[in-house]
Design a binder for these strands. Sequence first.
DNA 1: TTACAGAATGTAAACGTTTACATCTGCGAA
DNA 2: TTCGCAGATGTAAACGTTTACATTCTGTAA
Lengths: 351, 351
Amino acid sequence: MSATIREVARDARVSVATVSRVLNGKGPVREVTSRRVRAAVDRLRYVPHSGARSLITRRTNAIGVLLPDLFGEFFSEAIRGIDRAARGAGYQLLVSGSHGDRAQAETALRSMRGRVDGLVVMSPNVDGPTLSANLPEGWPVILLNCAVDGAAFDSINIDNEGGATAMVKHLAGLGHRRIAHVTGPADNWDARERCRGYRRAVLAGGGGDARELEVPGDFTEESGYRAARVVIGMRPRPTAIFAANDSMAIGLLSAFQEQGVRVPGDIAVGGFDDIPIARFMTPPLSSVAVSIADLGARAMQRLLAALRDGRRHVPCHETLPTRLVARRSSGSRTLKPTPSTRHSRTRRKDP
Amino acid sequence: MSATIREVARDARVSVATVSRVLNGKGPVREVTSRRVRAAVDRLRYVPHSGARSLITRRTNAIGVLLPDLFGEFFSEAIRGIDRAARGAGYQLLVSGSHGDRAQAETALRSMRGRVDGLVVMSPNVDGPTLSANLPEGWPVILLNCAVDGAAFDSINIDNEGGATAMVKHLAGLGHRRIAHVTGPADNWDARERCRGYRRAVLAGGGGDARELEVPGDFTEESGYRAARVVIGMRPRPTAIFAANDSMAIGLLSAFQEQGVRVPGDIAVGGFDDIPIARFMTPPLSSVAVSIADLGARAMQRLLAALRDGRRHVPCHETLPTRLVARRSSGSRTLKPTPSTRHSRTRRKDP
DNA sequence: TTACAGAATGTAAACGTTTACATCTGCGAA
DNA sequence: TTCGCAGATGTAAACGTTTACATTCTGTAA
């Protein structure tokens, strides 16, 4: 079927070693020979067999990417960043998504072993011990937003807690005293961290124990929609809500609109993630911006660096800052931001 | 470093052939031997070297996935569907995203050759001839929403034209005579098909040449926002707009809200894609639903079938239907759909 | 001329699997 | 007992690369 290096060698009247040297650009080869080899390669449409290559070089030039079952912008943005960084370094991506539970993640992890040179793992809903038990200690892994602490692995996290704190303080700064919180799923690391930030900020503001103002959600618009009814029924009614992500905040806005509750007049709303659609809501949604693509790209860079360092690499931990984006839904007094001031991203091809 | 089949064989006091037989489940092996081998495998944490394996079996158990530079729900949904189907069959996914231009797509295609058993290609903004020139004719490929016709390759498309026609007819059925259209990028296949559907429906409804009512967009909310101003300035002003995707429709809603134009009272709005957020807009957005995940899963199933059939496979073409979802933004008289009636998807983990 | 250095090229041994084929067991039938 | 057969296991030859080492060139200095 496909041509081998031997046939190329014969066609170019050289040895296989020379063909290999030309292809890998190492070792001295005369210009004229090199040209002849390249011509043969083109003529025969030769492509090196990656298996054979990795068999002897002990490298696959592939990176495994393990992502959870997340929807929407988050997934694509993360992949985008990772892909960009990987491609630049000549690595390919072996992707495995949708790992709701532990067993699936384990299976995926196992099947990747031996196929990849390193691993990017994002697994916010798998607990730390399980994770580290299944991770091949000793080879390059970087953890994204995982509930693993300790120095065993490289990791990068978003500053969920800090972002949440900032949002709550922003609301408090606008005069709100009773600030409710719609939480994310209990088994999700990001959600827990954001909740912790909320509690800390409320406590710091003298709000006392805020547990009674927490409404459970699961990151869906739907759950935000339902949470709105709960909040409306609270006595005394909160004057502000911080939702653990934008999807739920959008659900809130939808429900409030239906119920005739005015935002931010009757109740102020803040979200988290600053998804692109946030600024196009009515009213535009205040949120906490995090650059997922950058998170992914950064992770891949760190992984590649670890790959280069080999055994001399020392794992380290990094936290990416967030940025508060105040818009009308929180009743911010800032100028109404016009859509044309959108920050970094300009093109969106989303048929 | 990692154990080899030979060490496992030694540890279990059998030959490498027996180990291989146990691992692949082919050939007769006594139960007691099999157990001993499996114990050794576990003890040594043996994982077969995929390169060596694919070297001799001539199969990689990996499928290449080539996706364009698309953002948002679309990308994640497509991958999700593909991943689900692939995993079930024991295949892994070599993903390459973000291919704005032709050169990048070519590079990605080349680097995948030899690493995968088959290819899923979604490339709405690469022209047909270029694509087919770079595709390895003769081995399993399936095209998603590509501008390639002819019988050379398997393909699956969304019924963009039919969906667009349905939306325009829906609007016309509500009494609208001047229906504007915000188009997608000119180089995008989906966008062109949707535009064609718009024109056909307008023509069929006796609307004459509708070119003057077409406003260029690029699938971003931003471009929808800008298009709104153009439409507002038209004389006589259209009473309805069909945006080529939901993102732009959301941009329209945002702009109209700001300008005090009421939807659907002053102007009716329809989108395309039915992204999850559509029903949570104010007013809830009418749209054309397409199941991207199903599209991806279906594509992978077809590819796997082709893989099984081998050389006896005959390429075929398939078009997936769309479904009109009428909500308040078009002024539909249907009951206000409550969020709890969301169709298939229930869970969304989108931190 | 010869000797030699270094550049260019060739040879062949890995790498870790799978699998056709050979061999070695028992065991029942002749 | 001998033979044949089938089931269980072992042996060794591929598969297509890379690369250490050996060999052959080419040009220059003695």
